[in-house]
Amino acid sequence: MKSLQDSLYNWLTIKIVSDERPDDTAAAETEKMFFDILGDEFHVSDIEIEKDDVMYYVHYNNKDGERNKTRFPRELIEVMLNQIKNEPDKYVNYPED
């Protein structure tokens, strides 16, 4: 990932999908990959998410142990989830062999 902001955005977007679709192994694996990037490349820890009617807020500790917060509009974070909900036939969960 190019930046912490991009990594947080990508992780949060797929985490929302993964949380909504717990049987979606591809979403779970992708969420784990982005989560690992946050820890391994950016040394982010203790991530917490909150949301209101307009925004998602991501609270986290940086590599120096300082608590930080960033925010993302819900409409941007939920675009993938909404697409899946609107066209479920295109996003079928396939069982693992």
Rank of each mutant, 00 (worst) to 15 (best):
N86M: 04
P73E: 01
P73I: 00
L81D: 01
V17W: 05
K90W: 06
T30N: 10
I84M: 08
I16M: 10
T13R: 15
A28V: 08
G39M: 02
S3Y: 07
V79P: 00
K51R: 13
N62C: 10
P88C: 03
I16T: 15
V79C: 05
D23A: 12
E50S: 14
P73S: 01
D6I: 13
F35I: 00
P73H: 03
M1I: 09
N61V: 01
N82K: 15
E41I: 02
N82M: 14
T25L: 15
V92E: 12
R67S: 08
E78A: 03
L12I: 03
Y56W: 11
Y57C: 00
F42N: 06
P73Y: 08
G65I: 03
D64R: 12
K85V: 01
S45G: 05
V79Q: 12
I49G: 03
P22A: 11
K90T: 01
Y56G: 04
L76F: 13
D97W: 12
E48A: 14
Y57F: 14
E29S: 13
M55H: 09
K51T: 02
K69A: 05
K51C: 09
S3C: 09
S45M: 02
S45T: 15
M55E: 04
E48W: 03
D24R: 09
K63D: 12
D36I: 00
I37Q: 12
L4H: 09
V58G: 06
L4P: 07
